[in-house]
Amino acid sequence: MSNLAGKAYALSVLSPIKPWTTWINQAVLLYSLIQGRISKTESNLKKLTFIHYARWQVVYRDNWLGEPPGQVKYNYLLFFSNFNGTWDQYIDAFSDVVPDRLNLIWRWSVKFPGSVPVTPFKGYIRLNQYDTDYYYNAYPGAATTDVKAAIFLKQSLDKFAATNKDLDPAAFKLAYNKFLISIQNSLMSTGAGPRFTERHQAASELKGAPYVN
C-alpha cells in the first residue's frame, strides 16, 4: 500500500505515446541502451548511490491484459525504477544531470513538458505515476549500496583469510592494513535511515533487519 519499503521507493510511470510515433521511441530506447554502455555520464550515473534500477519499456496497446484489441487508444511508455532517498531528490537528479537524454526518451509522450525546468517535469511524473499496491524489500534497513558493499566486504574478507594464513605477525599486520584500506568504504552502518513520518520509523523498525550476513 505504499511506494516505500524500508529505504527503497518504487516508481512506476505510464505515459501515453501516439501510436504513429512509437517506432521513433523504440529506436531512441535502443540507441540509449547502446549509448549507455559507452557514455561516461551513464557510467557515472550508475555510480550514484541512490539509484537502484531504472528501465524504460514500450507497452503496445494490443498487449494490455484484459482489454480487447482496439479498446486502448495509445501505446504507453513504462518507466519503472527503484531508488533510495526521496522522490524529489531522484527527479531533481535526473533533471539536473541528464536533461537531454530524458527529453529524447519522453518527448514522444503526449504533452510531455520537457525535463527542465523541474517543476512542470515533476508535475508530469506525478500525473502519470501509479502508486504501488505491493512492494517487498528483503533488506529494509539497507540501500543497494550497502548490500553491494556487504557482499564486497564478505568476499574480500574470505579472500584475505584464505591467502594470508601463514604470515608472520609483522607481515600479517602490513597485509591486514592493506586489506582494511581496500574495504574502508564498505563499512557503513545500516538501520532505519531517514524518516518522513513517525509511522515510517515504526514500520521500518518492525521489519527490523538491518543487513547482517
Partner: peptide, 24 residues
C-alpha cells in the same frame, strides 16, 4: 526549506548514503 536546508539536514547530516556512509 525542503530542497535546501531540510534536505541537507535529513539526507546528509543524519544519513550518508550519498557518500557511501549508510546510516552513519
Amino acid at each position: 526549506f525542503e530542497r535546501q536546508f531540510e534536505f541537507v539536514q535529513q539526507q546528509w547530516v543524519h544519513y550518508g548514503n550519498d557518500f557511501f556512509q549508510g546510516d552513519d
